[in-house]
Structures are given as structure tokens and as C-alpha cells.
Design a protein around this nucleic acid. Sequence first.
DNA 1: TGCGGAAACGAACGATCGTGCTATTCACGT
DNA 2: ACGTGAATAGCACGATCGTTCGTTTCCGCA
Lengths: 203, 203
Amino acid sequence: MVRAAPEKSKGDATRERIVHRALEIASLEGLGSLTIGSLAEDLGLSKSGLFAHFKSKERLQLEVLEAAASNFTLEVFHPALVKARGLPRLRAIFDNWLGWIQSNQSRGGCVFIAAAMEWDDREGEVRDAVVDWMQKLHAGLVRATELAVQAGDLRADVDVDGFANDVHGIALKYHLGARLMRLPTAVPEARASFERLVQSCAP
Amino acid sequence: MVRAAPEKSKGDATRERIVHRALEIASLEGLGSLTIGSLAEDLGLSKSGLFAHFKSKERLQLEVLEAAASNFTLEVFHPALVKARGLPRLRAIFDNWLGWIQSNQSRGGCVFIAAAMEWDDREGEVRDAVVDWMQKLHAGLVRATELAVQAGDLRADVDVDGFANDVHGIALKYHLGARLMRLPTAVPEARASFERLVQSCAP
DNA sequence: TGCGGAAACGAACGATCGTGCTATTCACGT
DNA sequence: ACGTGAATAGCACGATCGTTCGTTTCCGCA
């Protein structure tokens, strides 16, 4: 039978469970180190039973990225929409982003950043998906920056693309400081960098 | 026999050859994806013959990082020493850094950045080595920034740690733009970010 | 209640992983 | 020139990788 929208069958439930756990592991060990065998054992499934849900490992990786992308917009962009257009919303996006990267629970860092470094010299659908998401992220940052300019929170002559790049750079450096270096000062340092950047663009 | 300094035996020569090629591959595929079998085949050696030089894969990875570190100081920091203390030297370091990341030859990006993302949630000597190098990199950037302050090129009240963080962030974002996104505009954008940062700290 | 298809399993495959052993080849000092 | 230790090769090991196939279990509808 061909179902239409909600997809609530038993298979879809475990499939969701698999992707959810796979995202956690991929965040910790990297999307490339994600292995079907250990993932199946971790979930109490058989290797072949898990594999049957996706016809290939690459498909699993792509669904993991898809889930991560939807989580990102849900945890970073959406909550910021309640803030007023302009600097408040921009700051909320940045703060949520820091929280997403740190993610005090078991999740380990932004899976896209790790995947971006892992796949930057490879080819294939995984790489394409990461590139695509990065473009959307950049577009989102640019849009928020433009609104801040329109709101008069930033000078009218700021390079919105450059501003988005700089914010992204601060987030990347924060990822290093918080996760690799495990610096307790990473959050205030990142916030300070952000505020300095905003200050330098203040009208 | 225990030799002292120059180490010119046959074994050391091939050992050097191995590490050199291993660094190239690790830059392209990632330090974790580096495999002894394919590396041996690539060099025309037997797997066991190559393995005998290092007693473990981890040791090989550590020597690769060591070689990368010495390359970095040789290509990024040392050439900048001919420039005058202050902003000229700082700018030279940044430019050399961009060149190191892009590295128009077969080498693929900064192996430390990739390793940093790959090992940020693992434990072991490789992680320790990456952390150690990152600290030294930060110290080098801070030192160059301090000299720029002393030279009067930057305001006396700038947060040198924060400045170093921001420069590092710009370089990280450039890595993404140049390698993953393959943007031809990555270099001028990174330079523009750097100049904006300097401008915002000008006396 | 029974039936049909979806879902999960068990076993096996070829390949490759890192790592030990032993044997062979080579370079070099006496 | 020879003998010796370093350097490399050959082979095998257990483990694990992604993937396939055939079977079994289970859910949901008639």
C-alpha cells in the first residue's frame, strides 16, 4: 500500500530511532566513523535488520544530515523568531548557535562542521548535502544581518556577506575552543568577539 | 650502534619518505582515514615493512602531525619574520596562513583543523598533540598581536587574546569557503575580514 | 482467525583493517 | 670480502567493514 503523509508505521518508528541515535554517534565520532555494526548493536538490532531500512551506508549518512539540519533550524533559527527583528534576533541566533555547538547533553558538537572538514576533499552526495546546508546557513545569517541593517541596528554600509562570514568564523573558533580545547572561557570569549563585531558595525 | 645527530641511514630516509606521503594523504582524506595498507601500496612498500618503522598506527599519526607542525612554522611563521614587527608581520602571517590552507598543490587543507574536528571528542595522544599545537598557534598569534600593539599599529586597549581568536576564526571560515565551498572569492573575503578587524582596532 | 506483506534476523561473503611473527635481502664497518 | 645488524618482505591472525540472501517473526487488515 502506498501511504501519503504522516508515515506512522512500525518501520518508520524504528527508522526514526535509528537516525536519532546515529546522529548522536556521528556527532561524537564523526559522520565517517559511523558504522552500521556498532550502531545496530547499540540499538539492540541486528546489522542486517538495520541495514534493510537504508539500502546503503551513504543513504543513512544523508538521512543523519537531514535530521541534523532540521534540528538546527528548530533549535537555532526558530526560537530566535520570537525576538524582534534586528540585533536582538541576530544575537539570539548566535546564542542558540553556541548552545547547539556545546549541547550539554551527550551530543558532541555540530555534525556539519565535522563533516565539512571530513568531506572537503571528497566527492559524492554527502559532500553535496553539506555544501547545500552551508549555503542555506549563510543565507540565513545574511538575511538576519540585512534585517538588522534595516532596523537601524547596524550601519547601512556594512558588508552583510562579510558580516555573516565573520559571525560564522567566531562560531567555528568557538567550536574549537569549547570542544577540542575544553576551555571554560570559550562562551564568554565568543560572546565578546560577537559584541566587538557588532560594535564595529554600530551606526 | 647509537647514532647522535644527523640520522642519515637508509631507514631514516624511507621513514621520512613515508611520513611525507602520509601527510599528503592525511591532508586529503583526514588523519583518521589514513590506512597503513593503502599507504604502503602507494609507496611501493610492503605493509609490514612500512609498519616496522612505527610500532603502531598512532605513532605514525603523531609523526605526521609533527611533520605538519614543522611545515607550518616553516611556511607560515618563519617567512613573516623578515617583515617589520607589528601590522606588516601580522598581515604576513595571515597571508601565509591562507596560502598554507589553500596550498595549490596536491596537499589538501590544514591537517590540524581536520584533526581538531575529528578528535575533539576522543582521547589519546593524537588529541593531546592537536591540543598542544593549537595552544602554540594561539600563543604565536597573541605574540604577533602584542608586537603590533607595541608598534602602535593597534590600539593599546585591544584584547590580544580576543584579537587572536578572531583572526583564527577568519582562517577557519576561509578553510570552509575555499576547500568545502570552493569559492573563488574566499581569499578576498578573508582578507577583507582581516582588514575590517584591523581597522576596528586601529589607534 | 487467517493471510499477506512488512520488519527483523542469522549467517555468510569478500575485502580490508592493524598487528604480530619469521624469513629474506640489503647496507655497511672491519 | 665477509659477516652482522638493520631494513624490508611474506604470510597469517582475528576483527570488523558494508552488503547480500534466505528465513523467520510480527503487525494489520479481511
